[in-house]
Nucleic acid binder design. Structure first.
Lengths: 147, 147
DNA sequence: TTCAAATATTTTGAATTTCAAAATATATAT
DNA sequence: ATATATATTTTGAAATTCAAAATATTTGAA
């Protein structure tokens, strides 16, 4: 049986693939232009540390979907470059808590600005109430990944 | 000045980041479950070869936003595993044209199915005409990357 | 209390992916 | 003819990742 939305679906798929393929490259170029010396990978580590509830190694690695071992090497270089410090949790001394330095907050401010501009570009031609459709669609896509 | 859409924008940004962070992992799990032995990286190379107009090394690398040198190593292993063959362009013998084998088309069929299910999950609760809003939003985001 | 099991992290060794620059081959234009 | 441009591969190095082993600390049961 034919799908009446076939054409729209094809377009949405192509747009998503295109966006997905380009976002990292564009974001990296933008950050470089802002004089940020870190890779997108490193920036995403900082972002995860900022967003996660308790910034232990396990929690951060979990948020990033990488192993704790991989995170250790990432944190090692970020520590060397003075973007993070390591603290022991006083309650449970097995846990290492990662804290961001001011250097990191500068980077994250620039990163947030990029995302703001990106989101503004989506909203600029949206009419009242249309944001609901967009949010619902993205929620459906996100929950598709939960099964 | 306050932005009346501030809350909606925040939600859209979080959804996009979440989708972006998870899609590759979920897609990789799916392909593995379908008994595909290739990495997502390798699958995306096959996808680019299929989609590009003329599948020369330069065109493919361009589509993937990687250097031709990087592509050469990727094609080397895909050739070894019998997913592609190399042809010389008879018009211009500098060009190497990459062709997919049947093994690749099997993989791409499974990959397409994943994307179909993904897109269906977006459309399942969309009413008539609402797909226009979604397409317009994604188009705006995509063209934000063009500046 | 004490010690085995569980949990948190780091270390190690290897694979994959990537790049820039040099090398090679072919085509084009003067 | 030959210099220049274009297409690709090779080379050497860096970044990112993983799994498994090693280390440190906590927890729970005897």
């Amino acid at each position: 049986m034919k799908d009446k939305n076939a054409e729209a679906k094809k377009i949405v798929n192509e747009l998503l693939v295109d966006i997905f393929n380009r976002i990292l490259i564009i974001e990296a170029e933008y950050m470089k232009k802002q004089n940020v010396k870190l890779s997108m990978n490193e920036i995403h580590v900082l972002e995860a540390i900022e967003k996660v509830e308790e910034s232990s190694m396990s929690n951060i690695a979990n948020k990033l979907h990488i192993t704790v071992g991989s995170l250790t090497t990432a944190i090692n270089t970020l520590y060397q470059k003075k973007y993070v410090v390591r603290d022991r949790d006083s309650e449970d001394r097995r846990k290492v808590i990662i804290k961001l330095t001011d250097l990191s907050y500068e980077v994250l401010k620039k990163h947030d600005l990029f995302h703001e501009q990106m989101i503004d570009s989506i909203f600029k031609e949206l009419n009242v109430g249309e944001d609901k459709v967009l949010i619902e669609s993205l929620r459906n896509l996100s929950s598709f990944f939960n099964r």
